[in-house]
Design a binder for these strands. Sequence first.
DNA 1: TCTAAACCAGATTGATTTGATAGGAATTAA
DNA 2: TTAATTCCTATCAAATCAATCTGGTTTAGA
Lengths: 200, 200
Amino acid sequence: MKLSKKGEYALRALIDLGIAAEVDRELVQVAELAEKELIPIKFLEQIMQEMKAAGLVVSQRGKFGGYRLSGPASEISIGSVIRLIDGPLAPIGCVSHTVYEKCSCPDETHCGLRMLMLDVRNAIAGILDRYSLADVVDVTTRKMKRNNIPLPFSESRHPPSGSARCRLLPSRGARATVPLEQRLAPVEGLLSNLLPDYTI
Amino acid sequence: MKLSKKGEYALRALIDLGIAAEVDRELVQVAELAEKELIPIKFLEQIMQEMKAAGLVVSQRGKFGGYRLSGPASEISIGSVIRLIDGPLAPIGCVSHTVYEKCSCPDETHCGLRMLMLDVRNAIAGILDRYSLADVVDVTTRKMKRNNIPLPFSESRHPPSGSARCRLLPSRGARATVPLEQRLAPVEGLLSNLLPDYTI
DNA sequence: TCTAAACCAGATTGATTTGATAGGAATTAA
DNA sequence: TTAATTCCTATCAAATCAATCTGGTTTAGA
């Protein structure tokens, strides 16, 4: 039931880009992401390109280039990222909604294992498809603020001259995400449990 | 988030042994299990030995030997089987309860991904540790009965002479498992949903 | 125009895991 | 004694994973 390193790296990088967007940092270079997250730079480069091809991020080439999210973090579900990098969420192919695959068992309709794994799949997807990148970013930045840890990416790394620069991203103003409080109340051990802010 | 073939085979074999116990079949040979479940026999042999070493099943060597569950199916949790064969249930090491492993991220306490994955781990473990082999066997046999499908393993494959044979297993009489109805009510897509028997 | 910084692209590699096979040794019922 | 079965160990091929290497192309700015 593992998430691959690649998937982990992809998500960590996306979360960073989400934080960067939050603090109006328009571009982040692969090198900076890799350094902060302790990810092999060339490997991350590969991953970023995969995500670019999928439309999750956009890039600016050339000197002082970098990556940013292609749109609001609230519209990227965690599940979709994992599906992109690691494939279906389902533990076995015969319960996958996105990439169903017939299994070798003689009678699928009377397979108790399948029934159980369907529940597991639904539990996983129920979490990973419900929460967006914005939610994870939100939770992360809140916790950092609460603990007086400065948010990363506040300073552009290479602003060669001094001060005001044109923004690549239109200001999104207030976050567009539906606040967590208004969502389906979690049952057990959800993000909320980790954050006294959210009382359910 | 995959369950390995090995894990799948292990569970399918255990479910079969559970059904076998239910119909008072005392021993099942690897060959029979493999044939029924379309599992490569030599591979299953290996798996059975691993499970034997872990104490999940016991074997009878020699002619007309075979395997059976070492105890009541109600005392084998699905989670423990998967942990044995595939390792921890957690998607990443830093949220594993059984085999914690420090992850490479710079600040574990402010890692949003980790918080999320902890929830995923809890969701998975919440299912797989809650349900026992007996539950899965139960659900399977009920469905088969409802659809008038004869339970497998009703006939011992090699009863060379005719009729009554001494039982290796003491009759367990009524099942010792706590019925599903009395358990924690599931929220979404649990086994119950697949079985109109259980109305929640 | 030149150059350094950055992304882009594809091939390659090495380690590990997965899924399986092979061949026989030990055990046991008949 | 024989046949059927588990037990044991070794080996293997393919896939996947995680990463690296090499060399491009694009771009901002001096």
